[in-house]
Computed example of a mutant assay.
Amino acid sequence: MAEIALGMWTSHGPTLSTSAEQWLLRVSADKKNRHPFRGEVHDFETLVELRKGEGLAEAVTLAERERRHAACQAAIAEMADRFVAAKVDVAVIMGNDQRELFLEDITPAITVYLGETIWDQPATAEQAARMPPGIHEAEWGHSPPERREYPCLPDLGTHVCEALVPQGFDLAVSKRLPEPAGHWSSGAPHSLGFIYRQIMRDEVVPNLPILLNTFFPPNQPTARRCFELGRAVGEAIRSWDKDVRVAVFGSGGMSHFVIDEDFDRMFFEALRNRDAETLCRIEDRHLQSGTSELKTWIAAAGVLFDTDLEGEVVGYEPCYRSEAGTGTANGFVAWQ
């Protein structure tokens, strides 16, 4: 039977694939947008006023941004080294889609990918021209320099579906990616591509992508539903009649596009204590915008809490880009 041998939770956002100077390319969008923060929604100027006592002016200096960027790169390298050392045969990746695959014509809550392979490639010049500032610059971190096909696990995906549908999980399935894409990128979502490129270092093992709609109301799965999904997927993996070592990933997070270090510390503590109820009780108003990607971490926790794996926080850096607290908190956890 299959053995779950490795668990990894990792951020995947643009701050990890752009320089400290390039982080500021996103500030113009920050100033235009309204941002969820601690259950409410604020404009940029209000956030600056709310957070004026936090010393963020120092956090956004170039020297501090460079220090945090370097720490993130060291953590990514450590995660990749641990992945190699674990010698896994296959992987299950809990990821999310941000209108890369699913557009407004249909947005499934949970999708299991059943294709034999999944492809990725760089954006075309026309797609790159449509990207917001700071996004194309990060593309190398999740898309290969040319089109590539990566092996997938349709047999495991089918086994997961056959196990979960009788339990009441209404799953969407997909056997191929759209061509041409309707979004500004093509191929695998960046939540998968980051794992392929930076954790697997382009040596991609056969993998099963499970994509959650974390971003787009009104059919976002709740935190509890994500955990229940993960627990059921874990049971299905362990009942899979294959003698393989499996890695399980949660790809996304942490708090962004407004950073909340207190929230992130609470989340780390819940992982450390295998505190499922704390994770399940997180309300949707606290899991919006980029922070919603932590639902992929919650789904992975549902798998991994039922194993005997243990681990630690490999790295955590709140990568601020403005005195409003905008940016991305990048976190990395490994259980072995």
Score class of each variant (00 low, 15 high):
131 M>D: 10
131 M>K: 14
132 P>Y: 07
133 P>Y: 07
133 P>M: 13
134 G>Y: 09
135 I>C: 06
135 I>Y: 12
136 H>F: 15
136 H>K: 15
138 A>S: 14
139 E>W: 01
139 E>M: 11
141 G>H: 01
142 H>Y: 15
143 S>N: 12
144 P>A: 10
145 P>W: 09
145 P>H: 09
147 R>H: 10
150 Y>G: 13
150 Y>I: 06
150 Y>K: 08
153 L>G: 01
153 L>K: 00
155 D>C: 01
156 L>G: 04
157 G>R: 02
157 G>S: 10
159 H>W: 01
160 V>A: 09
162 E>G: 01
162 E>S: 08
162 E>P: 00
163 A>H: 12
166 P>A: 13
167 Q>D: 12
168 G>D: 08
171 L>R: 09
172 A>D: 14
173 V>P: 02
174 S>N: 02
174 S>A: 11
175 K>C: 04
176 R>W: 00
177 L>F: 10
177 L>G: 01
177 L>K: 04
178 P>L: 09
179 E>D: 15
180 P>K: 08
180 P>M: 12
181 A>I: 03
182 G>E: 05
182 G>K: 08
182 G>W: 06
184 W>A: 07
184 W>I: 02
184 W>H: 14
186 S>E: 15
186 S>N: 14
187 G>P: 11
187 G>H: 07
189 P>Y: 08
189 P>V: 11
189 P>R: 08
191 S>G: 14
193 G>K: 02
195 I>P: 04
197 R>V: 07
198 Q>T: 09
198 Q>Y: 03
199 I>D: 10
200 M>R: 11
202 D>I: 04
203 E>F: 02
203 E>N: 13
204 V>K: 02
204 V>R: 00
204 V>F: 02
204 V>T: 04
204 V>A: 06
204 V>Y: 00
206 P>Y: 01
206 P>K: 02
207 N>D: 08
208 L>I: 11
208 L>S: 03
209 P>S: 04
209 P>L: 09
210 I>C: 06
212 L>W: 06
212 L>I: 13
214 T>F: 04
214 T>N: 05
215 F>Y: 14
216 F>H: 15
216 F>C: 09
217 P>Y: 05
218 P>N: 05
218 P>F: 03
218 P>I: 04
220 Q>L: 07
222 T>M: 05
222 T>R: 01
222 T>C: 02
224 R>H: 03
224 R>C: 02
225 R>N: 07
226 C>V: 12
226 C>H: 05
226 C>F: 06
226 C>D: 10
227 F>H: 10
227 F>Q: 06
228 E>H: 04
229 L>Y: 00
229 L>S: 04
230 G>K: 10
231 R>V: 09
231 R>Y: 04
232 A>Q: 07
237 I>Y: 00
237 I>M: 11
237 I>D: 08
237 I>F: 07
237 I>K: 01
239 S>V: 00
239 S>N: 13
